[in-house]
């Protein structure tokens, strides 16, 4: 294709649709095949590392907080259950006084007198 025909095709393609074959011709004959440097991808990925740290640090914090909260809550709940069971075994009941540690006081004891 000579330059005049190519020029007409080029200008035509700006406002009108062209076939795939014509499009390929334009790309091969009239458009620069630009590209970035050889190590472009590596440079992007290198710049990404600090960005990644910033981007995901917030998400990581929330995830860590969620995990820690669950672990602490589970441990606390387990301790409460164990203490309740041990209290039940040692005192034989789970009354209000037992939970407060007042069920075994002796009326003549110093603490009992102070309570009164």
């Amino acid at each position: 294709m000579n330059n005049d025909d190519l020029r007409e095709l080029l200008l035509h393609s700006i406002t009108e649709d062209v076939s795939d074959k014509e499009r390929r011709l334009i790309e091969e004959e009239a458009i620069y095949d630009y590209s970035f440097g050889n190590d472009f991808r590596e440079r992007v990925m290198n710049r990404l590392e600090p960005v990644k740290t910033r981007l995901f640090s917030g998400i990581d914090f929330l995830r860590s907080f969620d995990i820690i909260f669950k672990r602490v809550a589970l441990a606390g709940f387990t301790v409460i259950i164990i203490l309740t069971i041990s209290l039940l075994i040692s005192q034989g009941s789970l009354s209000y006084d037992t939970l407060l540690g007042l069920d075994t006081h002796v009326d003549e004891g110093l603490v009992s007198l102070l309570i009164k």
Partner: peptide
């Protein structure tokens, strides 16, 4: 999800297209 290699593939896939736009 934090997979950097996946983003590397996006860069590879569209590097040429972006170069053509920006350099044009």
């Amino acid at each position: 999800e934090g997979d950097q290699k996946a983003f590397g593939e996006i860069v590879r896939r569209y590097e040429k297209m972006v170069a053509r736009t920006i350099k044009s």
